[in-house]
Simulated assay, not measured.
Amino acid sequence: MTNPYDVLGVNPSASDEEVKSAYRSLAKKYHPDNYSESPLKEVAEEKMAEVNQAFDTIMNERRARGGQSAAGTSASSNLSDIRRMIQQNRLVEAEELLDGIPVNMRDAEWYFLKGSVYFSRGWLEDAANHFSTACRMNPNNPEYRAAMNRIMWQKQGNFGTGYGNNPNPYQTTQNTGGCSACDMCSGLICADCCCECMGGDLISCC
């Protein structure tokens, strides 16, 4: 097997932060999105897989030698940064960081954020799978449950109800304060009666 440090281009004595920095640089370079229309797409995918495996191997070995690596101790803060990136629509950067988190450290928040990236790209099936996993791992989180409800609602072909900046985006019945067709008809009939009492006729058929 290729030396994982050689793959990332760092020395074994490199700090965790240096390893992460090297990984991010390579992930940005070889990310498949950069080669979607290129004949080098398969090569880039293979290289990206090699880079991911090298990063995971190094971090797992360091944790096994004792103590948490920087990647482990700062997992929560990293996810907070990724959440902000998604909110700013910096999806490629967010996904690079998410993919760099070792599998054994991927908690419910990881799956929620990964699902959010997929949702932002319109990949509803992948988003639904990740939101579902987040809900299974943390069933009491209302944000994860709301995201799952939203994706299921949208997968059924429903758009526009309760989305955007609505603080309760999954509420399907809303009081808009407008008039229904029945209200308009009732109003016209009342107006016609008033006109007839005054000798006029607003609606000739009534």
Rank of each mutant, 00 (worst) to 15 (best):
N34I: 04
K28P: 00
A22K: 08
G67D: 15
S25V: 03
E17I: 14
G72E: 15
Y35M: 01
G72T: 10
T57L: 07
S13W: 03
A71I: 13
I58G: 09
A49K: 09
K29W: 10
Y30H: 01
Y30T: 01
R62H: 14
S15C: 13
S38R: 00
S15W: 15
T57M: 06
A44I: 02
S15Y: 15
M48K: 02
L26I: 01
A71E: 12
P39A: 12
A64F: 13
H31S: 05
G67P: 15
S25D: 04
E61R: 04
K41P: 00
K41T: 05
Q68I: 11
D16M: 08
A70C: 09
A64M: 12
D56W: 03
E46F: 03
A14R: 14
S69N: 14
A14C: 14
K47A: 03
S15P: 10
M48H: 03
G72R: 01
E45T: 04
L40S: 02
H31F: 12
Q53D: 12
S36D: 05
M48W: 02
Q68M: 14
V51H: 05
R63Y: 14
S13T: 12
S36Y: 07
R24I: 15
S38D: 10
E61K: 05
S38H: 03
A44M: 07
A44P: 05
R24D: 08
M48L: 10
S38W: 02
K41C: 05
A44H: 03
D33F: 00
E18N: 13
M48V: 01
R62F: 13
P32C: 08
S21T: 13
N52Q: 07
E18H: 09
E37Q: 10
P32K: 00
D56E: 04
G67Y: 14
S21A: 15
S13N: 12
V19E: 12
N60H: 09
V51Q: 08
E61L: 04
K28C: 04
K28N: 11
K47Y: 01
H31R: 09
E61G: 05
K47M: 06
V51C: 07
K20Q: 15
M48I: 02
R24G: 15
E46P: 03
Q68V: 11
Q53C: 04
K41V: 07
A44L: 06
G67M: 14
S36G: 02
S13Q: 13
R63G: 11
E45R: 08
R24W: 11
S13L: 12
K41H: 03
A44G: 06
V43E: 05
Q68P: 09
A70Y: 14
S25Q: 08
P32L: 08
G72N: 08
K41D: 02
M48F: 10
P39T: 13
N52C: 04
E45M: 10
